[in-house]
Amino acid sequence: MSTLVIAEIRQSELRASSYNTIAAAKAKGGDFDILLLGKGSAAGADALKEFGAGTVYYSEADAVAEYTAESYAKTVAALVGEKGYTAVMMGATTTGKDMIPRLGGLLGAGMVSDVIGFDGANYLRPMFAGNAIATVEVNTPVAVMTVRETAFDAAAPSGGVSAVAEATAVGDDRAKFIEYRLTESSRPDLGAASIIVSAGRGVKDADGVKQVEALADLLGAAVGASRAVVDEGLLPNDLQVGQTGKIVAPDLYIACGISGAIQHVAGMKDSKVIVAINKDEEAPIFEVADYGLVADFAKAIPEFMEKVKAIK
């Protein structure tokens, strides 16, 4: 009964999901090792050696220097074969979603996606856009899974020092990584942002939008919009949060002047903390808000920014 955690590195930086995945391994129970592949993984392995793993494996070999699902899955499969792990887990990042099922195919292993918890030997995961939680049993000797990062708080160093060892890399020359084309924006992406400040019909005009953007920038947040604001042409369509736009679940969602139409709520109701600022106390947004403030956002936002600046 032991687990292999696949930590993730991109452009020589450990990705935060690695710590959530370690936490998931600890929540599952039993011993675990960590594997980290790619450029910079030696240093990365060093950074992960105090998290309670038996061994932290790494490889910077040419075959796995850059990520491809093909070479990584083969390399992980070889290690699983050698060490006899009964579970392999990785964060449900796009890399985890790409590679882990391929690994499952190679190992003939059952897979569970987006694990949010454990129930004895079984796994819990959301289905139907989060409207149902499934209990899943895996009936193969090895179980592979991706874990939803938001369901497990990042692990902290737990003392002790893991062994660090180099893994044997296996390449696959039918697939070649060419390059990254990552988005450069001063604001975080809607999908990835931990805070979103969203503008609704109540912001009225371009000046109102500017206020919302100023608050977002102060908080390092992404800007979102209700359908009404997009329809008015005040913000671009790709910022629309809602049933027909983006579905988001940040740690903090601040709805400014948003009435809370069902279509909008459908896109943000899974946010951890929802704040609604609206001058209409009957607005349905208050029914989903953790904290509601009945106020004109145009007055509330500057005051809000002042108070936040005072703390920081």
Binding site: N139, G292, E303
Partner: peptide
């Protein structure tokens, strides 16, 4: 290789509160 043993309802959102001022918020 896997079997869904059962489905359950995700937890509902807990009721929120109205705050009186920006400071309190």
């Amino acid at each position: 290789a896997t079997k869904i043993l059962g489905l359950s309802q995700p937890p509902a959102r807990a009721a929120g509160q109205i705050v009186g001022s920006v400071e309190e918020l």
